[in-house]
Structures are given as C-alpha cells and as structure tokens.
C-alpha cells in the first residue's frame, strides 16, 4: 500500500512558459475555435492583454514530480478518477508559471476488484512574484509494487 508518510511531500517548483503556439495547439486539439485563444486583437478587444489559454490548459503543465519518489512506490498503472481546477486569474500567453506538486492525501479503499490505493495530488501554479495563479487536484487510483 501507499506510504502514509508521503502526505505533504512536495516537488520543487518547475517553470512552465505559456507559449502562444502551445495555446493554439491545445485549443485546436479540443476542436475549440474561440478566437480569444488564437487572435491577439480579438483578445485585446475582449479586455485581455494577449491571448488567453483554455481553462484546462494547466493539464499540460509539467512539474518535477516523480510519482515514484513522491509516493514511494513503483506505479504499475494509474487511473485518473477526479479533477478540480481553481483559478485566481486567467492564464495568458507569456505567463511564466512555477508549478509544484504536493501529495495531499493517500488512502486505501476496498473496491469490487479488491484493495486499491488512492492518491490525491495537488498542483499549485505561481507567477514570478509568487502570486497564486491556479490550483488543481487530481485523484488517482494507483496500482503499485513496492520496490527496495
């Protein structure tokens, strides 16, 4: 089972630069052609300094979190069962966001397929001044094997 001591373990913040091209590709991948994601002039007319990222864009951010290190197990399979995003402000092209991942909770649950481990990971994104930009929580059902 997962190590209860993993709770609170946090990866060091990792820089994510929000590029205009990455926003465009992400919006295209969703088949979402809202011009506020693509067109600078449109975005300015809508009250933004530049193009905006779709709300779920933090899904493609990286942190230095290594699940094996954070959870103390070798992950054999992962099932993503729940997701939350909270935004302090919209994410904009040119943002430099530092993302850190923290183990918020680990639990053992018994389901139809037997015992399973559940981990809740919380990502926090802050700008260069340290101001919070977003917070997200992922709940993962983890099948693991413990290695020495």
């Amino acid at each position: 089972m997962l190590d209860k001591n993993a709770v609170g373990r946090t990866s060091p913040p990792t820089l994510n630069e929000v590029e205009k091209g990455a926003i465009r590709r992400f919006a295209e991948a969703l088949g979402d052609f809202n011009p506020v994601y693509y067109d600078e002039e449109y975005a300015r007319a809508a009250g933004y300094p530049t193009v905006v990222a779709p709300p779920t864009f933090p899904a493609c951010f990286h942190s230095s979190a290594d699940l094996r290190e954070l959870l103390g197990v070798t992950v054999k399979s992962l099932l993503h069962t729940e997701q939350t995003f909270e935004y302090e402000r919209p994410i904009l092209a040119g943002d430099r966001i530092f993302v850190a991942t923290r183990v918020a909770d680990v639990q053992e649950r018994t389901g139809p397929a037997g015992r399973m481990d559940v981990a809740v990971l919380e990502d926090e994104g802050r700008d260069e001044e340290g101001a919070l930009v977003f917070r997200s929580r992922r709940t993962l059902v983890v099948r693991s094997s413990r290695e020495p």
Partner: peptide
C-alpha cells in the same frame, strides 16, 4: 472535461471568467 468547461464558458461568454471546475 475541457468540453464541459467550454459549454459553460460559452454561456458566460468568456473562458477567462471561469474560476472553478470539478468533475
């Protein structure tokens, strides 16, 4: 989930106005 959020963003008229999402 992104599509569910888009559905709401269209209603708000602005994806930048979304402040919280859960599913």
């Amino acid at each position: 989930l992104a599509w569910a959020v888009d559905c709401f963003a269209r209603y708000l008229g602005d994806p930048g106005a979304v402040t919280r999402v859960q599913a």
